[in-house]
Structures are given as structure tokens and as C-alpha cells.
Design a binder for these strands. Structure first.
Lengths: 254, 254
DNA sequence: GATACACCTTTACGCAACGTCAATGTCAAT
DNA sequence: ATTGACATTGACGTTGCGTAAAGGTGTATC
């Protein structure tokens, strides 16, 4: 039995375009081409097409199918196992997506609240990404992956209130630190207040607080140009001043 | 705060190409373009990007996102509900796929068996498609949709053994019919054997057997050119001969 | 023998959401 | 003045075909 494109196409329930495409990418070439240039398929091609469609229905890519059907020694079972794994991962992702969408829908008591939530979620993620981009390598090298990951996890688990607290705290530190700078005394009341607030700020990010780590971070503010630039932006010398205040606060001098 | 492409990109954890694409398709245009042609984004754009990425993570298409973020009156909740439905359907499909893949893997005790199975499944489907294409309209008009659908369902439910039996039976009918033709007697032993086998062959496709329907089908073999051509291929007059034999077998003359 | 009509061919653009060069211009620092 | 990092606009590649467009072939009919 011989088939032209359309005969084979309707037999297999696919389009002629698909057959021509399969010819083009070389996964199913016609048995021969007749004198008018028509593609003529035989029984062998029907069988092969059957196989191709079988794998296609399983969601295997044509590239993979090509390997399966062209290389007779190819381990189809292994390929299927692998494919199964991919499908399972895909389903997990889908489940996550669905859960998120449902959560979002549930949270939509009026558009406003959701919009805030969106921004909030985004900002938390943004903050972490930003930090990772900027300081990720050094900080991870210094404190270890676990510490950083736990810190990031802590941020992601913050409630909106906590998040607002921590940002407010950062603002307060900046303000008080600026005032303390004017006194010039890192042991003074204002500077020590700033150091104390800085400790509270830190506990939002760190799982464990220790005076040593706190003092170490203060020193890093001075050593690392980017941290230093951040603190010195308004008043040069602020980074050093903060470090001095924290060293006095913790009683640890490096 | 103002951002160039790269700043915004690294802030959001996306590529600059993505930002340029979003500009191109108009879902996120920069606040302004500076004198050198650089894209400059502001706070409003950051917020909007946050929204876009939020929906993107939920798997919403950029087209949909565009509607959501450009039209403030757009009902985001409804869109999400719809999206959720789509996701659920997707998951169902995925589950089906996974089940099929697993079934196939389980059936793979050696490559050989699976390969046969594949072919077999394909052939059954092929047979039905072929029949539907060729005779579908007339047969459905003559016998009604239910009869045809039940017949197709019967084929799809055949075991491999049954399938092989039925094809073997068809072969046997052909052989015996050819021998019977030589006797020239439709009432003879060979011709009646052929008619009997034909009845058994029919019961593989028909839910109910009746002499009337059998005789009717035999007449159709003669009336329909395509059936006639099939039977007369080797010996002209075979279709008529078979009809005569079946009329005698069933005792029904039209 | 002309016409109609179904079927065949190749060529090529379109789709989603970017990735990836390529060629070229700009900014800040050495 | 040069380097190096960053910016720009094209434009092609990806996946699996759908969908014309422009033209040749096969068969039946008038």
C-alpha cells in the first residue's frame, strides 16, 4: 500500500504540513519521490509515523523522538524514565503555581490590598536579589552559605508588619546616626542608641546574634568600599563612626 | 531613584533583553529617554515591573499581563480565576501524560514487546480512521451513529490476540473465497464456509448480529464500488459471489 | 480539448518570549 | 588617548507547526 501526503495525513490524523515538516527535519522521509515530485510513503513509513506519534503524544520533543526512532540501539526506556522525571517536576511547578494563584485570589478582598501585597512580595525578593548580587560572594565566603541562606529565608518569611518595622528601623538608625555624628562622640548617648538600634535591626536578618559578629560586621562597613560608600554618602566618616560606636557598645575592639 | 536598563535588570533579576522586549511590546516603557538614547526608569516603572513579574511568575501570558497592568479597570481577580482554571486543566493533562508514560514504562519488559504494542495500538487506530474516512458517511447514514461508534469502540477494546485473530480470519476468508470461486457454486460447501467465516469476522465489529444486516452488508459489497473493487481485485465477480453465498447462508434474498 | 477541481509542490512569514551575536555609540577612569 | 564597562538598534534562532501564495499535476466532466 502506498500513500501520498494527504492519504497518510488523514490516516494518521495529522496535517500534510506536519508530514512535510517531518520530512524537512529528517525524522520521517518518504519511501520515494515520484516523477512529479510527489512524496510517496510505504508501509515502513506508516509504522515509523505510528511510533513518532506515539512518543509525541507522551510530550517528547521531536528532537528526542528523532534519536529514539533513528538510533535502533537507543534506550527508549531510559529516555522515557527521564521524560517522566521532567513531567513530574513540571507538575510540581504547576502545583506551586496553582497554590500561589489560589492564595492570591483568596487574598483579593478588594484590589487595593492585593496590590500592596504584590509590591511587598516583590520588594522582599528585590532586596535579597540586590544583596546577593552586590555582596553575595564575599558575605557567603565570610559567613558561609548556611548563614546567608537562613538570613534570606528569614526575610522571605517576614510579615508585612515586620518588613515595615525593619525598614523604619533602618531609617531611624540613619537619622540618629546623623545626629550622633554631630556630637563627634561614639561613646555618647546618641551613638550608643544607634548601635543598639543597629543590633535590633540585625536580629531581623540574623538567626543568631553575637557581639563578635556584630563588631565584625561594623569593621566590614569600613573595609568594604560599597558599604562605606553607603554610610558615608551624606557624611564622610560615618562608617568609621558607626564602627567605633559598635565596638564600644559590644565591648569588642578588633 | 533612577535606573538604567542594567540596574533595573539586576535589581529585578531579569535580563536587559527582557526590558528592551517589554519596551518593544509596550508593557513597560521607560519613564524617559536621555540625550544619549538610554532608557531611564523611575520608581513608577519599578513598581509596574514588580507587578508584571508577579503575574509572569504565575504563568500568565504577557498579552494578558498587558491588559491587567494597562487597564486599571481590568478585573484582575476574574483573570486569575480563569487562569487558575487553565492551570487545573493543564495539570489534568499532565497527570494523564504521566500515567501513560508510566504505563508504557511498566510494559517495557524488553524493548520488543513495547514496540509491538505501539504498532498494534497504531494499527487499530489506523484501521478505524481509514474506515471512517472511506465509508464513514455512508455507513453512518445507513446504520446510524450508535452502531458505528460501538463498532469502533469494540475495535479499540480488542486485545492483541483478538486483533490478530480477526486479521487472520480476514485472510482465511480471502483464501477460501478464492477456492470457492473456482467451484462457481455459491451454495457449495466452500462458499458456505466462507459465508460462515464472514459472519464470525463480522461479530468482531458488530455488537449485535442479524441475518438481515449480514445480507444487507453483502449487497452493499456489490453496490459500493470501493467494496466491490476490494473483493474483485484478484477475481472479478467475487463480490457478487460472496453476496450470493451469504444470501443463501442467511436464507435472505433481497 | 477545454475546463473544473482536487491534490501536489516549494517558499516563506507568523506565533511567544526572549537568547545571542554583531556593529556601533557613550561614559568614566586611567 | 585609550581602555573597559555599559548603552543602543538590528536581526537571526528557538519549537512545531498554521497559513497563505504561486504554481504544477491528475482525473473527471462537458
Amino acid at each position: 500500500m502506498e500513500y501520498t501526503v494527504q492519504k497518510l495525513a488523514s490516516l494518521a490524523g495529522i496535517s500534510t504540513r506536519t508530514l512535510r515538516y517531518y520530512d524537512e527535519i529528517g525524522i520521517l522521509k518518504p519511501a520515494r519521490i515520484n516523477s512529479s515530485g510527489y512524496r510517496i510513503y510505504g508501509q515502513a513509513e506508516v509504522d515509523r509515523l505510528q511510533q513518532i506519534l506515539f512518543y509525541r503524544e507522551l510530550g517528547v520533543s521531536l528532537d528526542q523522538i528523532k534519536e529514539i526512532v533513528t538510533d535502533p540501539s537507543f534506550d527508549g526506556a531510559a529516555a522515557l524514565m527521564e521524560h517522566r522525571q521532567k513531567l513530574l517536576e513540571k507538575r510540581e511547578q504547576l502545583d506551586l503555581l496553582i497554590a500561589n494563584v489560589e492564595k492570591t485570589i483568596a487574598m483579593t478582598e478588594g484590589r487595593f490590598k492585593m496590590s500592596n501585597k504584590e509590591k511587598f512580595e516583590g520588594f522582599k525578593k528585590k532586596m535579597i536579589d540586590e544583596n546577593e548580587k552586590k555582596y553575595g560572594k564575599e558575605v557567603r565566603a565570610k559567613y558561609g552559605d548556611d548563614v546567608v541562606n537562613q538570613s534570606n529565608a528569614k526575610v522571605m518569611n517576614m510579615s508585612e508588619e515586620q518588613y515595615q518595622e525593619v525598614t523604619a528601623l533602618a531609617e531611624e538608625i540613619k537619622t540618629i546616626l546623623a545626629a550622633a555624628m554631630k556630637t563627634g562622640n561614639p561613646a555618647g548617648e546618641l551613638a550608643q542608641k544607634a548601635a543598639d538600634l543597629h543590633k535590633r535591626w540585625l536580629t531581623y536578618y540574623w538567626k543568631d546574634y553575637s557581639k563578635e559578629a556584630h563588631a565584625g560586621l561594623a569593621q566590614m562597613y569600613v573595609d568594604d568600599e560599597r558599604f562605606k560608600a553607603y554610610y558615608d554618602k551624606d557624611q564622610p566618616g560615618t562608617a568609621e563612626f558607626l564602627r567605633d560606636a559598635i565596638e564600644i557598645y559590644t565591648g569588642i575592639k578588633k
